[in-house]
Simulated scan of single mutants.
Amino acid sequence: MLPLPSAQQLRYLITLSELRHFGRAAAACAVTQSTLSAGIMTLERQLDAQLLDRTVGKKVVFTPLGQEVARKGRQALEALEAVPQLAAAARTPLTGPLRLGVIPTIGPFLVTPMVRTIQERFPQIVLSVTEDTTERLLEKLSLGRLDLLILAMPCLCDGTETLPLWRDPLQVIMPEGHPLASASHVSAEQLEDQRMIMMEDGHCLREQTLAVCRQGRGWDSSDENDATFTATSLHTMADMVALGLGIGVVPTLAIDNGLLSTHPVISRPLSGGPVWRTIGLAWRPRSPRSADFHTLAAAFSTLAPAAE
């Protein structure tokens, strides 16, 4: 029978493949650098295979086989870690650590009521929250560093299970006195020739805004790069709109939670379709905590704004 790698050896290898630095990988695993290096070398001897290319100096370079072993090892470690999680979930649902990820266009406006909901209804959950872009959160989810994500859809969420919570309509924000301010609604066609302020690359709201703009006209890459300003947050976008640099598209969730309260900026609903995003949850497929996440989704759904 072939010797099987230990969970610790796989953890060393996977962490090194993610961080590409022996010192940082050792710190992440809470061991010394020599311990981590020895563990990986022992794994290579067990497999009778070279996983790292040590001919390139101090750089961490994986061989093609090493990359594949790290990928398979990650899957194996996830499956192994799911065993006690499955037993714990069966014994005591909705308890223990929950690592929650949320995107920046949702976090400032929804984290507080969601955290309070968890604290009040599920006090045995030990919660931690990470805010990051959709792409980075999905990567952390796939690596097992997060358990559950709060995202805006549509998004490239392949490799996850998703559950929609509610629709969040998009609105146009503009300076007071803007020509579009007299309209009760703004259509996608009316955004033509407007100077748009968008979120920077990596934020899903940027792609959702571009999708709305394309409804009115055929935007190409030059339109997206040359005719827009970019913002790092919705609050920065509101600042830029107030300065008259352009108009923006923001979710109703942000407006209802005071985004424009300190700015001489007004909003108008977008008309046409689809002119909304969907707030939802995402988690790893076949997670042993899937039932917990459905229960949390039902609780979070009570936070949806009342239909007008």
Rank of each mutant, 00 (worst) to 15 (best):
L243N: 12
V212F: 03
D292R: 01
Q215C: 12
I279G: 01
D223Y: 13
R206V: 06
T295F: 04
S301H: 09
M198N: 01
V186S: 06
S271R: 10
L210W: 14
G258L: 11
F293V: 04
S233R: 05
E207F: 06
F300L: 04
S290M: 08
R286H: 15
T209S: 14
S187A: 11
H203F: 10
V212Q: 04
R286E: 13
T228Y: 04
D201S: 07
S233I: 05
D226W: 15
N225E: 15
L260R: 06
A254T: 10
G246L: 07
T209E: 04
A254H: 03
A188D: 09
D201F: 02
D239H: 11
D239P: 02
S187Y: 05
S271T: 15
H294Q: 14
E207H: 02
R289A: 03
G246C: 08
R206F: 07
P274V: 12
T302K: 05
M198Y: 02
V186A: 08
H203C: 02
Q215F: 08
R289V: 09
C213A: 15
S287V: 06
R286Q: 13
C213L: 14
F229D: 03
M199R: 13
S261V: 12
H185F: 13
I197W: 00
A231E: 02
D193C: 08
L303Q: 03
A231D: 01
E224V: 12
R217W: 12
G248K: 08
R217D: 09
S271Q: 15
F293S: 05
H203N: 03
M240I: 14
I197S: 00
H185G: 03
W276G: 09
A282I: 04
S222M: 12
G216Q: 02
S287Q: 05
L260K: 07
R284M: 11
L281A: 01
